[in-house]
Computed example of a mutant assay.
Amino acid sequence: MRGAERKAFRSRSTAVAAGLLALGVLAGCSSESPAPLTKPPYTVESVRLGLVSPGDLGEGATEIKDNGHSSHVVYTPPNSIPTCPYVQRSENVEVQVEPAVEPVGGNPTGRTIVAPELVGASSLPVVTQGAVVFQNSSLVEDTMNTVLAEATKCPATFSVLGGPPTVVGDYKVGTRSVEINGWEGFAQHLVHTSPAEVNPDTYDDLVTVVVRKANAILYVGYAQIKSVGKRADSDEKVKALMKTTLARLG
């Protein structure tokens, strides 16, 4: 190969290498997570960007606002933060436990429910969610401490003996700490089994996550109906879902 040809070949090789490097840089940029849609301090409007939407669950999901208690078999105020779901229905709990805490000095987003559009068998969960935004850190700390104190009192097991058939049965509860995208709090896993004469085929698999970051407290309840014998996996699914949704909040 002559000197001029070698020089031209090296030039072409350098150009190709530079092009490949540029493509690699572009590919790396495109694979990064999208920029957050907002950042602290949060407002009621901005924190709603991190809530679960029908699009997060998939085809067949819809969203409704929880305006009242007329359709609830287990009622807590729409602006409250959950601590121990269903415990208010139990007759054998020995320690007084509040099922939810109504925050003082906060601005709530209100409660929304994202669920399948059609009632019946579905692979989609029912997500119940909301958040409260505060003006200063002391109010956030006080409220989160109150929520944690009540959640800690939630018994490991309890029973509901009377009421609608959908809530009668045995409840097992487990709680662990969580950290997701800088949001810190706890996840409470509740499994409800009905008496055999009422419903021998399925059980309720519910995980409630309550997390705090900066000046906001956010909660998500993720409920599935599982066939008896199938593994409970709401804990894994809600964590994956919240990694996606909370990434929208910087």
Rank of each mutant, 00 (worst) to 15 (best):
S80Y: 09
T112V: 10
V114M: 06
T109C: 05
S80A: 14
P85N: 10
P116F: 03
L57E: 06
P116R: 03
V133S: 09
D56Y: 03
E91T: 15
G58M: 05
L139P: 01
E91Y: 13
S123W: 02
T146R: 15
N92P: 11
D66K: 10
T128P: 00
V97R: 05
G60W: 09
C84Y: 02
L57G: 09
A131H: 07
E91D: 14
S80C: 04
N67M: 01
T128Q: 00
V87M: 08
I64S: 15
R89G: 15
R111Y: 11
L124C: 14
S53R: 13
R89D: 14
H72Q: 04
G105D: 07
T76R: 08
P125N: 00
Q129Y: 06
R89E: 15
D56R: 02
S70T: 03
V119G: 00
A115D: 00
V87N: 08
S53G: 07
V126C: 03
L118Y: 10
V97N: 07
Q96R: 13
S70Y: 01
P116Q: 04
L139D: 11
L148P: 03
L148E: 14
K65R: 13
T152S: 09
P155T: 08
N145G: 10
V93S: 09
P155Q: 11
T83S: 12
G105Q: 09
L124R: 10
V95D: 11
F134D: 02
V74S: 13
T143Q: 07
T76I: 05
V93R: 11
V127W: 01
P77R: 08
S70G: 09
A100V: 05
P103W: 05
V87T: 14
V93P: 08
Q96T: 14
H69Y: 01
Q88T: 13
S90A: 12
F134Q: 04
V140T: 08
D142T: 14
L124D: 10
Y86E: 12
Q88R: 13
L148Q: 15
T143W: 12
G105M: 06
T62S: 09
E59C: 02
T146I: 07
A151G: 03
P78I: 08
I81C: 01
H69M: 04
M144F: 15
S123I: 01
T146Y: 11
S80W: 07
P125T: 02
K153Q: 04
P116D: 02
V114Y: 04
S53L: 07
L57V: 11
D142Y: 15
L118W: 06
V133G: 06
M144Q: 14
T152G: 04
P103N: 02
P103G: 04
V140G: 05
C84H: 02
G110I: 06
L148S: 13
F134K: 05
Y86C: 13
L148M: 11
G68S: 07
A121D: 13
V97K: 07
G130D: 00
L148D: 12
M144G: 12
Y75Q: 00
E91W: 09
N79L: 03
K65A: 14
S53D: 13
S137V: 11
